[in-house]
Amino acid sequence: MNQTAVPVRLENIVKRFGAVTAVETVSLELPAGKLVTLLGPSGCGKTTILRMVAGLERPTEGKIFFGSDDVTQLPAYLRDVTMMFQSYALFPHMNVFENIAYGLRVTKRPNDEIRERVAGVVAQVGLQNLEQRAVQALSGGQQQRVALARSLIMQPRVLLFDEPLSNLDAKLRKRVREEIRELQQKLGITSLYVTHDQEEAMAISDLVVVMKSGIIEQKGAPRELYQAPVTRFVADFIGRANFLSGTYNGSSATVGNYSFAFAQPIQHGNVTVMVRPESLRVAKDGIGLEGKMHSVAFLGTTTEYTVDTAAGQLEGVMAGDAPLLAKVGEPVRVQFANEGVYLIQA
């Protein structure tokens, strides 16, 4: 790990634009050298937080620390933070080399050092032999790498990502995000990543922070958020989920006619039962929620199906090659697996 990496700490940050509150009392710590993702729908305040860390916006209240330094009032150009923009923001009147070297030129580094460091970072992101190209002549993926190289060359204390992959097509997005993850782990730069794509967030992050309307809904490792979402919003935003009203008595939960053994530290009484689609088990008869097969769609790797029950329509997923136990229209019993079920306070 990078010895110089610093943790970033946000303390009770509030940001208002006129009468609109974009961020409402957010406190957050980005561990040194880790990649933290802010995830949420548009307008949830995630980009505003990113811009406040960059210094492009100043918080209305609260403080921001890099390590032990209070940077709240420090202007952006002194913060030692770089960012990858959604639009890449490459300078159109400069070639690849000059784009990457820009920060070093501005800080008046000697020419030899610039050449050496550009060569180093160009090799790191795989842009060899393209230094003299005009940036417009590059593909989207290559432009992306120039933007990354331009950020990395400054050896910033904090690296920011503002939905950097949204302009790439799906296959390229997957590859670039793996490369970013690899480089970030190797260099150990404290990073903050903003996206509305939950799959991207899960794939890339050490820690995911789910936001809604300017507040933090939940933060945790990707797996933790998926398995134990504390609110219906988080469960719905991260992966797909069925939500059923039920009751809980400390050792078992009941939905309609179906009771199953379950233990979770949560208040007894009415609860919302969250069940992931892959955790549904369908049988012809036996114990289970009574229902009727509504639709079946074979998608290759997986088969998706829906079941109508008294508690509502349930969505299910199973392996594509698994044997189908019931045809559309036939009565079925639905059980829940041990994994992928979680109770949320109703």
Binding site: A76, F85, S87, A89, F91, G103, L160
Partner: peptide
């Protein structure tokens, strides 16, 4: 794009440099 100004700023250029160079 306003992101060009911001990119320049975050690459440690004060506004006068951003004006002159970008």
């Amino acid at each position: 794009d306003k992101a060009l100004d911001e990119a320049s700023t975050l690459l440690r250029a004060p506004s006068s440099t951003t004006l002159a160079r970008v």
